[in-house]
């Protein structure tokens, strides 16, 4: 094993999680991860030595995701297969989780990406801005609106998990 493969491999579980949460129901998350890995390995030499691997990989994946969305928009004929289940069925039956994922699905893709990058993947605002190729201010406002929207959705659709039993 070389250090390149080691460094990239260490990030695969996170890349899979992000891809699955980002794509929910729109395509095969592992295909996206694989395309990302292929591109990362091909471009490893072009990465700046000081550039941390994790945000670099996430930026590659996000670019691929955006071009995939564009490609799909132009591909009328083929549609993706049935939604890929991002989370094992037994987990989604836990009501609270199901609610939050369903709410996540309803956010627009920009808000979803920021919520995941900052809230789940623990990137700083600056790193998220670099990954999404947008200003830090945009990251913060999307985050704000995204969280507000998520909360609204959770309240509107009823917090099933919190329903009183008595």
């Amino acid at each position: 094993m070389n250090t390149k493969a080691d460094q990239i491999e260490a990030e695969i579980p996170r890349l899979r999680r992000y891809a699955a949460a980002l794509l929910r129901g729109q395509g095969d998350a592992d295909d996206l991860v694989q395309d990302c890995l292929e591109r990362a390995l091909a471009r490893w030499a072009q990465r700046h030595v000081d550039e941390p691997v994790r945000p670099w990989l996430f930026a590659i994946m996000h670019n691929l995701f955006v071009s995939q969305l564009r490609r799909e928009a132009s591909l009328r004929k083929w549609k993706f297969a049935t939604p890929v289940r991002a989370v094992p069925a037994e987990q989604e039956t836990r009501l609270a989780f199901r609610d939050v994922l369903r709410a996540l699905d309803q956010l627009d893709v920009d808000q979803r990406a920021v919520l995941l990058l900052v809230g789940v993947e623990d990137f700083s605002y600056a790193e998220a801005a670099r990954i999404l190729d947008c200003p830090v201010g945009t990251v913060m406002s999307r985050l704000c609106r995204g969280r507000e929207r998520l909360r609204e959705l959770l309240e509107r659709d009823g917090p099933l998990g919190l329903r009183r039993v008595k």
């Binding site: 390149k4 493969a5 899979r16 694989q34 989370v87 987990q91 939050v100 789940v120 959770l154």
Partner: peptide, 25 residues
């Protein structure tokens, strides 16, 4: 609470073993 719910809901994916076809090597 919302953030943690999201993290918990997505945690299982990160814990899955890496599929063979995605192993970096």
């Amino acid at each position: 609470a919302d953030r943690d719910a999201l993290r918990t809901a997505l945690a299982p994916i990160q814990d899955e073993p890496i599929p063979q076809r995605l192993r970096a090597a």
